[in-house]
């Protein structure tokens, strides 16, 4: 009914916006990458140590990077039109395979971190607002300030020191126990144990942002007339806070969460490197170091897809939370 129509309107609007955005991103990315000094052939030649002028030229020709920039761009776009992301000179395999092997891990990490940040942030913020100015608010404010001011990788390192090294509760590296060959529940819990620390490290900053935002929004809502209307109905204070206040306070929080998705993907590079998480972030770093533009372009393209899709989800969430948004 109404909800369905609102969702359809949101989807249509996003689809219209997404196409040109993606094309623009590809072309810009491609041109920017040309500005980087060096290429895959140079890196390989350097690593080999004994490459002659001829071998390097042969490599260049093989990778297709001896052609003019515009030809390279058109080639790339032509391949892309056939959903072919190209071939990685560095990893010697198709870029699509390479990324598809890493994408689920990154998505898992991102979604977990975002969910964790939202849940913890909203709970912290709601508690802080409910006890504003009293000790639960003060204590949480200090914790939130720490999260806000400490970089994610530092939180991650300290968590490794505490939970992996000292206490030995959680693994510090990878996304599963290598060679354990687990199945069923054991596999799930093993994966979860590996997920906890990286997700926390990635989420810590955002927990702080959402907590502060929720606190401010909840306090703002308390002054609204409809809160008095709700009280005048004789509703229980908890119900008033959950149904009437939080629902309104969530609108700004989800808006900001949507804008943070890009940052989250960027933060994933650092956190994945730190925790040896086999995701796209680490792949990106390796591709940059190896000047593997084919992989890099693929990663950037897919990242923009992930951000766009996530934004659509946030838009839908928005349309559900605030009926005034979808109907415009």
């Amino acid at each position: 009914m109404r909800m369905g129509r609102r969702i359809a309107a949101t989807l249509k609007r996003t689809a219209v916006h997404a196409g040109p955005t993606v094309l623009g991103i590809i072309v810009l990315d491609f041109l920017f990458l040309q500005l980087m000094p060096g290429n895959a052939a140079d890196v390989m030649a350097t690593e080999a140590g004994s490459a002659t002028e001829e071998t390097v030229a042969a490599l260049r020709h093989q990778f297709g990077i001896d052609q003019p920039v515009l030809t390279q761009l058109l080639n790339f776009l032509g391949h892309l039109a056939h959903l072919d992301l190209g071939f990685s000179p560095r990893f010697n395999t198709s870029v699509a395979d390479l990324i598809m092997a890493r994408l689920p891990n990154t998505l898992l990490l991102m979604v977990t971190a975002l969910a964790l940040a939202l849940v913890l942030g909203i709970v912290f913020g709601a508690v802080m607002a409910a006890w504003a100015g009293r000790w639960p608010d003060r204590v949480l404010s200090v914790i939130v300030l720490l999260f806000y001011s400490m970089p994610g990788f530092w939180v991650g390192l300290m968590a490794v020191v505490l939970f992996s090294v000292k206490l030995g509760w959680l693994p510090s590296d990878g996304n599963e126990t290598i060679g354990a060959d687990l199945t069923g529940f054991a596999m799930v819990s093993d994966r979860l144990a590996h997920l906890v620390l990286p997700a926390l490290a990635l989420a810590s900053f955002f927990v702080a942002v959402y907590a502060r935002l929720t606190r401010a929004a909840m306090l703002e809502v308390q002054r609204q007339d409809f809160m008095r209307t709700a009280k005048a109905k004789g509703l229980h204070p908890l119900l008033i806070q959950l149904r009437h206040a939080l629902r309104n306070a969530l609108v700004p929080v989800t808006t900001v969460a949507g804008m943070h998705l890009g940052n989250l993907l960027g933060g994933a590079v650092v956190v994945e490197t730190l925790f040896g998480w086999p995701g796209m972030g680490r792949l990106t770093l390796e591709a940059v170091l190896g000047r593997d533009y084919a992989v890099l372009l693929g990663v950037l393209l897919l990242s923009s897809f992930v951000v766009i899709v996530a934004n659509v989800l946030i838009d839908l969430l928005h349309a559900w939370l605030d009926p005034r948004i979808g109907s415009a």
Binding site: Q224, D225, F226, T229, A230, R247, N248, V251, L321, D322
Partner: peptide
């Protein structure tokens, strides 16, 4: 029961 002054703000906009 109570009726308030400003009907736009006294109804919850998201419900």
């Amino acid at each position: 029961s109570l009726i308030q002054q400003e009907p736009m703000t006294s109804l919850n906009p998201v419900l």
